[in-house]
């Protein structure tokens, strides 16, 4: 069970106070109406799901109710950093090769 540092409360708190909200830094397309079905589908459903370092969004639901980001290793479950929404992570993630998938 995780021990999570809330960057807003500036304390470590137990996982039970938090709720995970999926991949971090998912940006809603600025011009949603101009998106193709594929672009919209990518935003809606397709995720990095890495085995290793991952940036994810959590909410301090039982505490300050703020959303914030965590860089966490999805295998060792170690949390490398937590940072506020709008801030940039300090831990660099490995490059992932991603070609443009064809819509077949």
């Amino acid at each position: 069970m995780f021990n999570i540092y809330c960057p807003y409360c500036e304390e470590h708190r137990e996982e039970e106070e938090f709720h995970p909200s999926g991949q971090a830094h998912l940006a809603r397309p600025a011009d949603a109406d101009a998106c193709t079905d594929k672009e919209w589908g990518d935003f809606l459903y397709f995720r990095k799901n890495p085995r290793g370092l991952h940036q994810e969004l959590w909410q301090h639901t039982a505490g300050c109710r703020k959303f914030f980001n965590i860089t966490r290793d999805t295998v060792s479950y170690q949390i490398l950093e937590t940072y506020k929404v709008g801030q940039s992570p300090q831990v660099k993630l490995p490059e992932v090769k991603l070609e443009e998938p064809r819509h077949g």
């Binding site: 709720h19 909200s21 959303f67 929404v85 709008g86």
Partner: peptide
């Protein structure tokens, strides 16, 4: 409520 907070805090602060 969490939905509104999510959009406010992450998309439209």
């Amino acid at each position: 409520l969490n939905w509104l907070e999510l959009y406010h805090q992450t998309e439209w602060p």
